[in-house]
Write a protein that binds this DNA or RNA. Structure first.
Lengths: 179, 179
DNA sequence: TATTGTTATACTCTATAACTATA
DNA sequence: TATAGTTATAGAGTATAACAATA
């Protein structure tokens, strides 16, 4: 490869270098990226998130809160530790989400009478209504995914993904234990 | 449902409320969340990202930069617009990534002789070495995914995911066009 | 001592918008 | 006018660590 001078971006302009042009978009060599699942997992998450967010519109909570609100509606008096475990989020993240939902009047938090460390969450009427409304949008979203994937492949895809998550979670735990 | 007073978190302590306890982790009712793919797509991305990051260790670039570095190694003199298109990232995100890689001595940026607006990227020897090293870790990572998913399901899973991404991207474009 | 939750803080990844320069 | 890239800024979403209250 030809020798190149370093371009110190803070000071110099990039160095000129011949007249070749890079290949256009259609002919980019992605090499092993073509099958690099990490990239597709990221992208799949992104496009699905975007789809759900667009369907929810601006009158609903953000997509990420749907999970927590649904957990609370379906499990009145759920604790924050339980919410964290069920949604794979740190307790500090749960606190922040619950704070926002409480401020929005969607939930209320109580203390357990039997163990005063525990904060229980229940949905308000507004929270229940919001959850129902979001669930309708979620159903549309799931239908879009269903159509995109194809009915014949949907179940297998979901099952495979769950298996993958479980296995990698176990691997991670095993590795952490070795440290 | 019983009447509950609002707890203004900034001032009051949460209200006490009886002695019931929420169900324990094993018995959480996830309702439709059980099949809410959005949650699994997020989680799948997270666990895969974590796995790759752990395999890369701290001597490599972060997982997200592997894609860009690989694109540059395999497509010398690729432009930033092309990198953005191939990695589904905004040009400002690409600039930031390239800046970091240039500072780390992994790439150099040049200007096209034929169109001086275009900045071309090429990998340095160090960049090529880094990419090779990361590619080895990426192969380990892919193998872990392969094992987690099962060889018989791997290809179908990847294909389905690509189809899903493409379809949802098209849907998004179509919706944007309607605005 | 261990657990539940809160808070302050910070990190990662990313995009938007206004800009410069080039075409 | 349009395009390539830069910069300043912001914002989502999340976690870490130190902490108070309670067990």
């Amino acid at each position: 490869m030809a020798k190149l001078q370093k371009s110190a971006h803070a000071d110099d302009a990039p160095l000129e270098y011949g007249t070749d042009v890079a290949p256009d978009g259609a002919s980019i060599d992605q090499g092993l990226l073509q099958d690099f699942m990490g990239m597709y997992l990221r992208r799949a998450y992104e496009v699905a998130y975007e789809d759900f967010r667009r369907r929810l519109g601006k009158d609903a909570m953000q997509p990420g809160y749907f999970t927590i609100l649904t957990l609370i509606v379906r499990n009145p008096r759920i604790s924050q530790t339980q919410i964290g475990a069920a949604s794979a989020r740190d307790k500090s993240s749960v606190t922040k989400a619950l704070r926002a939902m409480e401020d929005a009047g969607l939930i209320q938090r109580l203390r357990s009478g039997s163990d005063r460390r525990i904060h229980l969450s229940v949905a308000t009427e507004e929270g229940i209504a919001m959850q129902k409304q979001m669930e309708i949008k979620a159903a549309d979203h799931v239908k879009a995914l269903h159509d995109a994937i194809g009915p014949d492949r949907y179940e297998a895809f979901l099952t495979t993904m769950k298996d993958m998550i479980r296995t990698l979670e176990e691997t991670a735990v095993a590795k952490d234990a070795k440290l």
